[in-house]
Computed example of a mutant assay.
Amino acid sequence: MLTLMVKDNEQYAYLTVTGDFDPEQITSVLGLVPSESWSKGDRNERTHYERKFSRWSLESRLARSASLEDHVRDVLKQSLNYAEQIRQVGRAHTVFIQLVGWFHTDYPGFGLDSSTIAGLAELNVGIDCDFYYLYSHEREDSD
């Protein structure tokens, strides 16, 4: 009998600002230190291509095994005290919360309670989802 090793699901979320800007200016306006940032024109070390836009991001502090909902709540905990500044940045640049999920075993579902939605509304940000379904219910090795 063949036993397959299946990776656990991984997911995370981050607040991100994209556009054409100096990331240091976003840090200065927000008063927050980003988890990651780059400038338009910087070289992407993974692809070796020039970046087409600037990005400033604040990631969830939770393990990648935590639920997407918990990741969103953690990003909100870090950023709600800066709501006015985030809305200000959002008038000049694109600001949203990015969700990323690699689903190796199954799709756990995703939903937000009203208080989390209210937090997103206070920041005036939307959500973008990048979900990758890396499993099949009809695998060759299933009985």
Rank of each mutant, 00 (worst) to 15 (best):
E45G: 14
Q78R: 13
L68P: 07
T3L: 08
A66W: 08
E138C: 08
Y12T: 11
Y49C: 04
L80M: 06
K40H: 00
E36W: 03
N81L: 00
L120Y: 00
Y135W: 15
S114K: 14
V29W: 02
L58M: 14
T94S: 13
T116N: 05
Q98D: 15
G126M: 03
T18G: 05
V95E: 03
E24M: 02
N9M: 12
F53S: 14
R43N: 10
F103C: 08
F21Q: 01
G101L: 03
V100W: 08
Q78D: 09
K52T: 14
Q88A: 13
E59P: 05
G19Q: 09
N124K: 01
L15F: 02
S114D: 12
A66T: 10
L134F: 10
R73Q: 13
V95L: 00
Y132I: 07
A92T: 08
S115L: 10
R51K: 12
V6F: 09
T16L: 02
I117P: 00
A83N: 09
L62E: 11
L15G: 02
L4F: 07
V29E: 10
G126R: 06
S114L: 12
W38K: 04
S37D: 06
P108A: 11
F110H: 14
C129S: 11
L4S: 13
Q88G: 04
K77N: 11
E36T: 08
E69P: 01
R61K: 15
R64N: 09
L68W: 05
I97N: 03
R87T: 07
S39R: 01
A121T: 14
N81I: 00
I26F: 00
V89Y: 03
V6D: 15
N124F: 02
E122R: 11
E138A: 14
H104C: 15
R55V: 11
V6A: 14
Y14I: 06
Q98C: 13
Y12W: 11
N124R: 13
E69D: 06
A63H: 13
H48P: 08
L134I: 10
H48Q: 15
